[in-house]
Design a protein around this nucleic acid. Structure first.
Length: 828
RNA sequence: GCCGGGGUGGCGGAAUCGGCAGACGCGUCGGUCUCAAACACCGAUGAGUGCAAGCUCGUGUGGGUUCAAGUCCCACCCCCGGCACCA
């Protein structure tokens, strides 16, 4: 109706972040408040959060992820640590190419423009990043050293090129590491397209050399799910390899891997993967046509979809026989697609009585089923396999091993086979080597030169970096785009100088993120990837935070890289970080992942425009546990704004002498400040930011009440208000800074010492003791902490609310938990 | 199926070395202010019952241990994430 709203600025005490937030950010920047110096004598602390991919805009999820560790880093600084909290950009990667193709601009242009935008957005949130250490992985100054590290790994045999069946994303036209294929439906982790199998020559990192070490989490404070996922992913299985001689010619024995060598007497047939090398050798002429048809169909199947694990077993007999090394029995050799070429030895001894899959197969093709393990008491199962390993099982029909407990027989039979040279203990892993090369343009070139005479040769150090040329037609074809760039492709052999070809594959971007944390320690070093002395001083990372979605990708690769570099003598570390924490994910309001295509992305900018950065930061930290996340729901942000307004009022309006000198109220306020100090400190350390903010709200409310009670001019009030600002500083750095100044203190609140809770001041004069009867709350007693137990018991029993239940009888028992409660137990 | 995490008011969530369930906030209702509305502020707010003091019930379900269970034990249900013909 009317448009004449009163101007907001006419009330000077009103909380209006737009009047001061930018001012303070600029000042912190100029004063280098958050720059970590190597020569600072205070104890060093390296707090790291995962750098983002420069997709172009920071959404509310980035703020959520980064504000938590920012709060921790800020508290650590105030606690007297020399904190390094760096930030950078994961500059290489497919989205840049895809965007570049869509918009007809160069990936470099797109990426660096996005980095500028995101840097600005990150500054807007008032995070305390040390921008002097910024790392951008697509910068030749960075990837030069990555190429250098690649060659170190190559020379150590930890990077190698080999032919193999690899996962291929038909949309991105790129190979994927096995970890980058997600879910039962085997989709590309990035674009969600179903992957295909292809036989290609690829670069690999020998991560499987570290499988056992990667399984060891001793001394690592990692979230349970991450440890479980990595452990599952590596998939260590202990068992035995057993050789089964073949008939008629015994060209070569078939080697199988089994976790149940105790069941070898029950192996009544063998199954090879259709791809197994011995299939063509062993197949008899009369079976050849059927076998070849089956192999062809199995190959086709893996290329199409092998989604249905519920389908009926298929397979064919190849006409040949093997000999069970324990029973000397001739057993038929089959091929079937349920035996996978990439696991174990690609061949199994089939023990249908003790394996569900073998059982199903035997029933379908009418093969013998022989139980060789039985429960110590009770009957054998009927119509199903006896699987699992219950402790009381013993062997039956197993020659001299009959009667032996199954658990014991595993070792005994393996040793027996070993003596005959037909078997040995063995360990198998599910984990595969990391496919490290990519057939795309926007990545770090792999620094290898191929000479007809001298084969693959590393690019000499002095020729690094192998710079990624800019004038490349990078449209994806499935072949590395650099192959069509003649000037790049042609090189001289480092050995003989003859015309040679450059490797045109580029590195997986996960290589970039496998060592960036080391580069932060000496980001401008132009003589080495990192300065060993500085790495020794800063590393390992004290607290690493980021998303859990990288459980078996980045979070495994960066551990592998650290261990590999250690073995090369380049670092003195076993692990990149000793403590890992994952934030939850902020979903769209529709409970789906935020994405542009769904249109559910919440940008922080408009919220900041309306409420200011501090309100947005605090709201994100308040909505729930930081490690949980959840759907975006802005209802409640007004509550945070109200809190900051109240804090503003409480901190600013302190003038005037105390109207009422009430020592008890004053003590209560002082106590509130110290209680809040202790709790906020603990909460930040445990990353319980939501409860920390609750405590800050409580302290604010205590101040407001104290002011109403006339305490505004007292020392206790001033101390509590100052404490509030110090505790708020990590959460709402701008508001704390502004109020710190308005209270007449010297700049900056962020260089003050973190307050310490005084236990003497948090103690109370009286405590309220709940009184229970049979565990149900019936009354409360107010006593001093030193009241003797007999006195408390007397008071409790005197209570009318207790007497009502006792009815004049003496209690059966009275239980006291000192300082906590009293429980009167009635006789029964 | 296996591994991991989780089920608490109308909502987000507190509280787990067993000891007052529901902190803090949102929302809602009532009030103050206002011509009115918004904002702000004050009060109430788990459910049921009672004039009231109070009582009963209540943390996914069913059992159990205990003076006392959201918390521990057994069995199960549901949700989320990961893996899955892994021998």
């Amino acid at each position: 109706m009317t448009t004449d709203a009163p101007a907001r600025t006419q009330r000077p005490e009103r909380f209006d972040p737009s009047t001061f937030e930018q001012k303070w950010r600029d000042r912190w920047e100029v004063d280098e408040l958050y720059v970590a110096r190597d020569d600072d004598p205070r104890p060093k602390r390296y707090d790291l959060t995962m750098y983002p991919y420069p997709s172009g805009d920071l959404h509310i999820g980035h703020w959520f992820a980064m504000t938590g560790p920012d709060i921790v880093a800020r508290m650590h600084r105030m606690q007297g640590y020399n904190v390094m909290f760096p930030m950078g950009f994961d500059g290489f990667g497919l989205p840049a190419e895809n965007a570049a193709i869509d918009r007809n601009i160069h990936p470099a242009t797109w990426t660096f423009a996005n980095i500028d935008t995101m840097r600005r957005q990150m500054r807007l949130m008032g995070a305390s990043f040390d921008w002097t250490r910024e790392v951008v992985t697509c910068d030749p100054d960075y990837y030069r050293w990555q190429q250098w590290l690649f060659l170190k790994l190559y020379e150590a045999g930890l990077a190698y090129k080999a032919m193999g069946a690899v996962d291929w994303c038909p949309k991105d036209k790129v190979v994927l590491a096995r970890e980058q294929v997600v879910g039962t439906e085997r989709r590309c982790w990035r674009c969600n397209t179903q992957v295909e199998k292809r036989d290609l020559e690829q670069w690999y990192f020998r991560i499987t050399s570290y499988s056992d070490e990667l399984l060891n989490f001793d001394g690592l404070d990692y979230p349970e799910p991450i440890k479980a996922m990595q452990t599952n992913w590596i998939g260590r299985s202990e068992g035995a390899e057993i050789d089964f001689p073949t008939e008629p010619d015994d060209v070569e024995p078939i080697r199988v891997f089994t976790t149940r060598p105790d069941t070898v007497f029950g192996a009544t047939f063998m199954v090879l993967a259709p791809e197994h090398a011995l299939v063509t050798v062993l197949t008899t002429d009369d079976r050849r046509a059927d076998v070849e048809a089956y192999v062809a169909s199995a190959r086709r199947e893996t290329e199409i979809e092998r989604l249905n694990t519920e389908r009926e077993k298929t397979g064919v007999f190849i006409g040949a026989y093997a000999v069970n090394p324990m029973t000397s029995e001739r057993i038929p050799i089959w091929i079937a697609d349920y035996v996978l070429p990439g696991y174990g030895t690609g061949a199994i001894m089939a023990v249908p009585a003790h394996d569900e899959r073998d059982y199903e197969f035997a029933r379908k093709f009418d093969l013998p089923i022989r139980y060789v393990v039985a429960p110590a008491s009770g009957p054998l199962p009927e119509g199903e396999a006896l699987v699992g390993h219950s402790a009381d099982e013993v062997l039956i029909d197993s020659g001299e091993f009959s009667g032996m407990p199954a658990a014991e027989a595993i070792g005994a039979i393996t040793r027996a086979l070993e003596e005959r040279g037909q078997g040995q203990f063995a360990v198998t892993y599910r984990q595969r080597d990391w496919v490290a090369g990519r057939q795309r343009y926007w990545g770090a070139p792999i620094p290898i030169i191929y000479c007809d005479e001298h084969g693959a040769q590393p690019v000499p150090d002095e020729q690094l970096p192998v710079v990624l040329p800019t004038d490349v037609d990078f449209a994806p074809t499935g072949v590395s785009p650099l192959q069509s760039h003649a000037a790049f492709l042609h090189a001289e052999c480092p050995v003989c100088g003859a015309a040679a070809r450059r490797e045109t594959d580029t590195m997986d971007t996960f290589v970039d993120s496998s060592w960036y944390f080391l580069r932060y320690c000496s980001p401008h070093d132009d003589a080495a990837p990192f300065d060993r002395a500085k790495v020794d001083e800063w590393m390992p990372v004290h607290l690493y935070t980021g998303g859990a979605e990288h459980a078996v990708m980045h979070l495994m690769y960066f551990r592998f890289f650290t261990k590999a570099l250690r073995d090369l003598g380049l670092v003195g570390l076993d692990e990149p970080t000793l403590k890992l924490r994952n934030q939850g994910q902020i979903l769209g309001a529709d409970h789906n992942r935020m994405s542009k295509s769904r249109g559910n992305v919440q940008a922080p900018d408009e919220l900041v425009e309306r409420y200011g950065a501090d309100t947005v930061r605090a709201f994100l930290m308040f909505i729930g546990p930081w490690d949980q996340g959840g759907p975006w729901n802005p209802s409640g942000i007004d509550g945070i704004h109200r809190w900051l307004s109240r804090a503003w009022g409480a901190a600013v309006v302190t003038e005037g002498p105390a109207d009422v000198a009430d020592p008890e109220t004053e003590r209560a306020l002082r106590r509130a400040a110290h209680v809040a100090t202790g709790e906020v400190t603990d909460d930040i350390a445990e990353m319980h930011f939501n409860t920390a903010i609750s405590r800050l709200m409580e302290l604010t409310n205590a101040l407001v009440r104290a002011r109403e009670a006339g305490l505004a001019g007292t020392a206790a009030y001033a101390e509590a208000a100052d404490t509030l600002l110090l505790l708020m500083a990590p959460f709402t750095p701008h508001t704390a800074e502004e109020l710190w100044e308005r209270r007449g203190h010297a700049y900056s609140v962020h260089t003050q010492s973190w307050p310490i809770a005084d236990a003497a001041l948090t103690a109370t004069e009286t405590i309220e003791l709940p009184v229970q009867v049979d565990g149900k709350l019936r009354d409360r007693l107010v006593v001093t902490p030193d009241t003797p137990a007999e006195e408390i018991e007397r008071m409790a029993l005197a209570s009318v609310h207790v007497q009502r239940y006792l009815g004049g009888q003496a209690p059966a028992k009275v239980i006291q938990i000192p300082g906590r409660l009293v429980n009167v137990v009635t006789p029964r």
